[in-house]
């Protein structure tokens, strides 16, 4: 009898300990993650928070540091990422739908596509830049160092990620939804388009937001596409030359003069703010879409 009691006691103490240890670990993890963000933003803020004003956004880059702003790189970044999203999002989601609901499961072609998509997601960004330089800027397409070329390259970069997360989201929709619809006489297309796809929107949106956030901070491939330039006008079309925020920040940050490094910090704060706004908008839109559906 006494033995069982001590055993019970031991188990419960162990459980409590493990529970506490794990809890501490989780708190530590979240604290580290938030702490890093806090640290980076507060560093930037202490370097350049006092400099933030609207003229940083309304002015163009300049060799006179007191006139310098970030308008053309900011607009350039939005153009590139905007068009990349327009290209990659529909293509990616439709590819995911095809792979999940239309392609034969054991088809060799399907497996080849799957393998390729997974490989592409792991290819370093700069490789896409080189491909873009060889085939889109020069090569066959000859689009030159333009917003269009950059958008295509960024689209290629985020496409595999969008396909993979969309597939996960689509797969997580219970099969009974579709089976029910099919049993009631809907065609495969109707079931997928009206039931599966809308139910998968939240998951797809989350993944796509992550992919787009990555794209707006991407600099390596665009370095090869002529984005490291002094450009004092906004893009006016896909054929327009451009520059982007990360590379303008890089240009300022690598300058030896301290004032330019402050300008780089201010640019980073703007980039973080833009990223935050974009993410927030996307999350609100997603929640709105989900709620509307659930009503």
């Amino acid at each position: 009898m006494s033995q069982t009691i001590s055993l019970k006691k031991q188990i419960s103490i162990r459980r409590v300990l493990i529970d506490a240890a794990f809890r501490t670990f989780l708190y530590f993890s979240i604290f580290t993650a938030l702490g890093m963000i806090f640290w980076v933003v507060s560093r930037l803020w202490s370097d350049a928070g006092w400099l933030l004003s609207w003229d940083l956004i309304t002015n163009y880059p300049s060799y006179n540091i007191d006139d310098a702003g970030f308008q053309s790189p900011l607009v350039g970044s939005l153009w590139v990422v905007g068009f990349a999203t327009l290209m990659a999002l529909p293509t990616g989601v439709l590819t995911a739908l095809y792979l999940e609901h239309f392609a034969g499961k054991s088809n060799k072609l399907t497996r080849l596509i799957e393998l390729n998509v997974q490989n592409l997601a792991g290819v370093p960004a700069v490789v896409f830049g080189l491909i873009g330089l060889a085939f889109i800027v020069r090569g066959f397409v000859k689009w030159g160092f333009t917003v269009g070329s950059a958008a295509v390259v960024i689209a290629m970069l985020i496409l595999p990620v969008i396909i993979i997360v969309s597939r996960e989201a689509i797969r997580s929709v219970p099969p009974s939804y579709k089976e029910g619809a099919l049993a009631l006489g809907a065609t495969n297309w109707q079931a997928v388009w009206r039931l599966v796809l809308p139910s998968a929107i939240p998951g797809t949106a989350t993944g796509s937001i992550l992919a787009i956030s990555r794209a707006i901070g991407e600099s390596a491939p665009l370095l090869l596409l002529g984005a490291l330039s002094f450009v004092t006008f906004n893009p006016t079309g896909l054929d327009s030359p451009f520059t982007i925020m990360p590379l303008t920040i890089f240009k300022y940050a690598s300058d030896s003069r301290e004032e330019y490094q402050i300008l780089a910090s201010a640019g980073s704060l703007i980039l973080v703010a833009v990223l935050f706004t974009l993410n927030l908008t996307a999350i609100l839109l997603r929640d709105f879409a989900t709620r509307k559906r659930n009503v």
Partner: peptide, 9 residues
């Protein structure tokens, strides 16, 4: 973090 950060700068 938004409010305390300015204190650093």
């Amino acid at each position: 973090s938004l409010f305390t950060a300015p204190a650093f700068g």
